[in-house]
Design a binder for these strands. Structure first.
Lengths: 206, 206
DNA sequence: GAACTTATTTTTGTATACATTTTTAATGCC
DNA sequence: GGCATTAAAAATGTATACAAAAATAAGTTC
């Protein structure tokens, strides 16, 4: 596992202090490497929105909040549907085959939160990438990247997993049947369900 | 000037080789610093979309192409208008004052391409930031960041500058008059004009 | 001469060491 | 006690040095 992913995994599982600036030396000790690779990882995590600079020194793990979650979710709803719309007719057998395998992998109970998040994105990726809209694709990827910080809630206390999996299977079927309208509608619902559930939950624990 | 900006400036003005992987030692010699700060800058430029990894080693300055330019421009058109819509009623006197000063600064003939691009974004920033939609704002910022690679054409052979400046002034006036409809319409035109001109130009030289 | 191996060189990744900057603690003053 | 100023400590940024990996060149076989 890459250092970058290790840190991500630790952020996702609250094993790193929130609200206090992370120190390079501290992380260097924790992960048993020098500060150079730590710096590289911090820069990447900052680009992902998982860390924000703290004044002139150090990075902070930003607090989760429903406003941000809602903002991401609204943008995903809009942009992913558009991306899927462009992609629909270009999705081929290979894409569907890969997507199907990813659903099965997602059923594995042993997965870490981070792995679940990555597999989930890999699944959607298969349905989005054929759109051949590189910038839109990258933007959607970045939004999913940011959204991933909230996975602890999505798959944790909310027990959303099985519902999500059912929708994945159904979505693939609609694509196979070339039923674009139903597929679009379901994807819309898929994103909306998860988003609204998350936002409601975040508001309730605030 | 920061190393990161120096490299950006050199990319923008074609002073660095396109199509061949950049070597850290090469850059290290060129800018007279060690490879550590070079690596930091490269990571940031990669996050900005100004560099793409080349296989397992090195980064490449990606080629400009009209498809990407069009993709960015279409997304900007959509997302910036929405952001401006959210922001409109929250734009205050201070924002307008700053925006006005930035227009004046943009009139300066001595500015480098990079500076022009940054001032242009700073101007729009004043009109977008009040929206209080952090993720949408960051996405728009990132799109402008990517769009900036095409500034060489926008301000160079196309002579677009004065036209753009006139629209800036007009836009501020509509905001002062609280004429939202006209402002939105003008902003739409402002982005569309620049985008279409750029895409047409890029297609013509292809 | 083309394709595959192996050796060489180059390039990147990382540790260590040090200079600079920033933060924290301590001191003095009102 | 609160606040500004100064001194100590800590943290960051960067250079250098070396190890690991990758790309290139050379050699070999068919």
């Amino acid at each position: 596992m890459l250092l970058y992913q290790k840190i991500k995994d630790d952020i996702l599982n609250n094993r790193l202090p929130v609200g206090r600036p992370l120190r390079q030396t501290e992380l260097s000790d924790r992960y048993g490497v020098s500060r150079i690779p730590i710096r590289d990882a911090l820069l990447r995590l900052k680009a992902d929105g998982w860390l924000v600079p703290h004044g002139k020194a150090g990075y902070i793990i930003p607090d989760l909040n429903w406003q941000e979650a809602e903002d991401i979710f609204l943008m995903r709803l809009d942009l992913e549907l558009r991306l899927f719309d462009y992609a629909f007719d270009k999705i081929n057998k290979v894409n569907l085959e890969c997507a199907g395998q990813l659903i099965e992998k997602l059923d594995n109970k042993q997965l870490t939160l981070l792995e679940k998040g990555e597999l989930n994105w890999d699944f959607h990726k298969e349905l989005y990438f054929p759109a051949d809209r590189p910038v839109l694709y990258k933007t959607v990827q970045s939004l999913n990247q940011q959204y991933a910080r909230y996975l602890g809630f999505q798959y944790g206390p909310m027990g959303y997993k099985q519902h999500s999996q059912n929708e994945h299977v159904e979505l693939l079927r609609f694509i196979e049947l070339n039923d674009k309208k139903s597929a679009m509608c379901l994807l819309n619902q898929h994103i909306k369900d998860a988003g609204q559930l998350l936002v409601t939950y975040l508001k309730s624990i605030k």
